[in-house]
Design a binder for these strands. Structure first.
Lengths: 193, 193
DNA sequence: GTCTATAAAGGGATAGAC
DNA sequence: GTCTATCCCTTTATAGAC
């Protein structure tokens, strides 16, 4: 109620999200979390019964905050090609700007058990991916829409996944990390082969 | 010299590689490693001064074992298009069959510091990626070869990165996890747009 | 809601016998 | 080259005062 500095669950989770995104579940201790939040470790157990629950709730909050953005990226348009163009640009900007989100998803896909993967599929990808396959069907009726949708995502996401190592690879230029440049490359590549 | 059951460094590293690949550096303890190897934790320190060194040497061994395969995938051919076709098929098979390798690289790109990334770039990607950009220049002289090479890699690798969650996504079929099917899809996509 | 204190377990690492 | 035993620190988690 008051404007004091005591932490709410949501505030704590917002602080925790970047920690787990950067170091993974096993790489972050309750003490580190407590220090980042500004309370003692024992106090965390007032808000969450254990570390696992804290982690899963952080995931849930991180994902729910961003799912809306994914849907905005699919803004409808009369022309499928125009919709596709906008989608690629939006996704590039999203993935480039929000590294925490991207890394959380990457880690979940790697480390999540069946239950958590199901959650991720339902909450984050679910309807977004479904709409993407619909768009794919409109763009290329002869192709498998599932494969094409994954291809588009991979084409975009991988360019930013490898950002940390990109500067060590031959032919690197600063512009290769620019979301607009990558978007234009991806669009032209998918259109003209 | 003898054929006893005492472990050599290389044998230990081969056992350790899948552990780090599956759970990451922080997710594996020296005791777990020892149990998998079949000795006590203290004995590990006869072979390696500390956990970090053990990890880095496991990486080095995993990468050196596989780098040759990457170069084989680039088997020269008179026709760049034919070379490209073979490269995609080889990479799909490699990434599909050797999940440990793929995951180690993924984790290193996420978590590696500058020094380790430099090592990864030099030892694994270095000349392979260079040759890929040369092939890209031959295939599409008008495109940025660095961007195109990354695109090809991303297109392939992402399809297998998301394997764990794929079955939860709309439109999934068993064939989507088949390396040949993915290879053909990628080739056709890059050729015809 | 946060604190101090502490339990119980597991972590990395070393010493010294065999 | 492997073992037992052990040190010391960190980890997760709980109890109870404020």
């Amino acid at each position: 109620m008051s404007a004091g500095k005591q932490k709410t669950k949501a505030e704590i989770l917002d602080i925790v999200i970047p920690l787990f995104a950067r170091s993974g579940y096993a790489g972050v201790s309750m003490r580190q979390i407590a220090r980042a939040v500004g309370i003692k470790a024992a106090s965390l157990y007032h808000h969450f019964p254990d570390k696992q629950t804290l982690y899963v709730q952080a995931l849930a909050q991180a994902f729910s905050r961003r799912t809306a953005l994914l849907h905005d990226a699919l803004a409808l348009s009369a022309d499928p090609e125009e919709q596709f163009r906008r989608l690629v640009h939006s996704l590039c900007r999203l993935v480039h700007d929000d590294t925490d989100f991207s890394r959380l998803i990457q880690r979940e896909i790697m480390d999540g058990d069946e239950k958590r993967l199901q959650l991720l599929a339902d909450n984050v990808f679910g309807s977004f991916f479904q709409e993407m396959t619909i768009l794919c069907r409109a763009l290329a009726p002869d192709r498998d829409p599932h494969l094409l949708a994954i291809s588009i995502l991979g084409l975009i996401i991988y360019h930013f996944q490898i950002t940390p190592i990109r500067s060590f690879l031959p032919g690197f230029q600063e512009s290769h990390n620019d979301p607009e440049a990558v978007a234009n490359h991806v669009i032209s590549l998918l259109k003209n082969g």
